[in-house]
C-alpha cells in the first residue's frame, strides 16, 4: 500500500506540470489573444438639422489601422461606446437615439426612412432644451440596446451607416463624435 502511494506521488510530480503544459498548448488561441481599442471618428461637427434633413455617418472600419491589423483574427467585440458632445439646437427637450442601417448605400435623409430601414442600437439619451452634454465611455456603454447587431457588422465587413435621431421636431449637433469598439482578437 505504501509502495503504491509512493509510485503515485512520483507520477504526480511529473503529471501536474506536464498536464498544465499540455493544457496551455491545447489552449492555442486563448493564449495568443488580446483586447484592442478601435475608434472611428465622425465628421466634425455632425449637424442633424431636422427630422427631414439628417446627416448620416458612413462608417467604414476598414479605414482604421487597428481594425485592419486585427480583422483577420477578430473573434468578438467586448465593449462598445459612442462618445462626443451633443448640443440641442432647439428650445425643446429631446431624446437622442442612434440607429444603424446595415447595408451601406446612399445616405438616407429622413427620420421615417431610417426607422424603416434600420435598427436602433443605442439610446435614448435625454437632452434638455438648448443643452449640451458630453457623453462619456461608461455612460455610453450602458445605453447600447443593439449590441448583437452592431457586433455582427463589426465582425463582418465593417461597413454600415449610423444615424442620430431624436424625438419631436429635433435638431442637434454632435461635436467630436466617435464610435469606440474594443475588439477581441486571437490567432
Amino acid at each position: 500500500m505504501k509502495g503504491d502511494a509512493t509510485i503515485m506521488i512520483r507520477n504526480l510530480r511529473l503529471w501536474l506540470p506536464v498536464t498544465a503544459l499540455a493544457a496551455l498548448v491545447a489552449a492555442g488561441c486563448m493564449l495568443v489573444s488580446g483586447q484592442f481599442i478601435v475608434t472611428f471618428d465622425f465628421p466634425d461637427p455632425t449637424t442633424i438639422t431636422s427630422p427631414t434633413v439628417l446627416a448620416g455617418v458612413a462608417v467604414d472600419l476598414n479605414t482604421v489601422g487597428e481594425y485592419k491589423d486585427h480583422k483577420g483574427d477578430l473573434k468578438d467585440v467586448v465593449d462598445l461606446a459612442v462618445v462626443g458632445s451633443i448640443t440641442n439646437l432647439t428650445a425643446t427637450a429631446t431624446s437622442v437615439e442612434l440607429w444603424m442601417v446595415t447595408s451601406p448605400g446612399s445616405l438616407l435623409t429622413t427620420d421615417t426612412a431610417v426607422r424603416a430601414a434600420g435598427v436602433k442600437i443605442w439610446g435614448p439619451l435625454a437632452l434638455g432644451a438648448s443643452a449640451t452634454k458630453k457623453i462619456g465611455w461608461d455612460e455610453s456603454a450602458q445605453l447600447f440596446t443593439g449590441r448583437a447587431v452592431l457586433i455582427s457588422e463589426i465582425k463582418g465587413d465593417g461597413r454600415f451607416d449610423l444615424y442620430a435621431l431624436g424625438t419631436g421636431a429635433y435638431s442637434f449637433r454632435i461635436d467630436k463624435g466617435a464610435l469606440i469598439a474594443v475588439v477581441d482578437a486571437g490567432k
Partner: peptide, 12 residues
C-alpha cells in the same frame, strides 16, 4: 483613459 477625436475618455 484613451484619447478619441481629440478628447480624453476614461473607461472604468
Amino acid at each position: 483613459t484613451t484619447t478619441v477625436a481629440g478628447l480624453s475618455y476614461t473607461r472604468q
